[in-house]
């Protein structure tokens, strides 16, 4: 979970571990923490609709290292469906 300042600079960053995998708990955490944007890969339609209805931006189907996704988001360039792996990272090892 990252907190960005007005200029997009990262002010704070922390890792939250939930006791068990639960989309309801995760949605509750997102709401209670006042999260503005969720960057993720897969999200079920029900929770996607719920979060967007709650005016939370959801960037889903994003694939790649989280730091790269955050950088792009800070620059305002991140789009849903972005694949952030470099071409050499996608070269199969056969």
């Amino acid at each position: 979970m990252a907190t960005l300042g007005d200029g997009g600079d990262m002010e704070n960053q922390r890792t939250v571990v939930l006791p068990h995998a639960s989309p309801e708990d995760l949605c509750h955490l997102i709401l209670s923490e006042g999260v503005g944007t969720v960057i993720c890969n897969g999200i079920e339609e029900e929770y996607y609709q719920y979060l967007t209805w709650k005016k939370i931006a959801v960037m889903d189907f994003v694939m790649g290292p989280w730091a790269r996704a955050l950088e792009q988001h800070q620059r305002g360039e991140l789009q849903p469906g972005a694949i952030l792996f470099e071409s050499q990272e996608r070269t199969p090892n056969v």
Partner: peptide
């Protein structure tokens, strides 16, 4: 192609 299976 070349993406981690878990991401897809």
């Amino acid at each position: 192609l070349g993406l981690p299976c878990c991401d897809v």
